[in-house]
Amino acid sequence: MAKARAPRKRPVRVLIAKPGLDGHDRGAKVVARALRDAGMEVIYAGLRQTPEEIVRAALEEDVDLIGLSILSGAHMALFPRILALLKDQGGQTIPVFAGGIIPDEDARRLKKAGIRAIFGPGTSLEEIVTTARSLVRHPS
């Protein structure tokens, strides 16, 4: 009998979370559903998550990817905090992407800080799915 079990095809696990205090989660849900339909396992953490909660969920769930949705304008405070916590806790290799209302100048700075991709309004779901897949293939 063959000794090793053939490893099952491994689905991508992705955490979708909304840091901070805005209550608009339609965008996050649309993205969660698109990633589900692309065959990914989407852990939907929901609204009003603190950076600590998001990082903890990402590490417990051992995700391959983190997607953050934000419309409140607090991204310059919350995103770097999430990246710093990830680094502290050994999760710096997990790629993070973001979507929401993020001005270009902020987007440039956030990308420099380590957010791998930022999607503004009007981005196609196809582009988000393609980018998500490529981030998993090339984590750092």
């Binding site: 589900r36 396992e41 989407v42 852990i43 939907y44 600590e52 909660e53 969920a57 417990e60 769930e61």
Partner: peptide, 26 residues
């Protein structure tokens, strides 16, 4: 159909983020 999934059981969980006495896995 696609093998994909939305795992939403975590959403109800309320706990302190630094509480190591709870471990949740979807």
């Amino acid at each position: 159909f696609t093998g994909g999934s939305v795992l939403g059981d975590r959403i109800r969980l309320e706990r302190r983020a630094d509480d190591t006495g709870v471990f949740f896995r979807s």
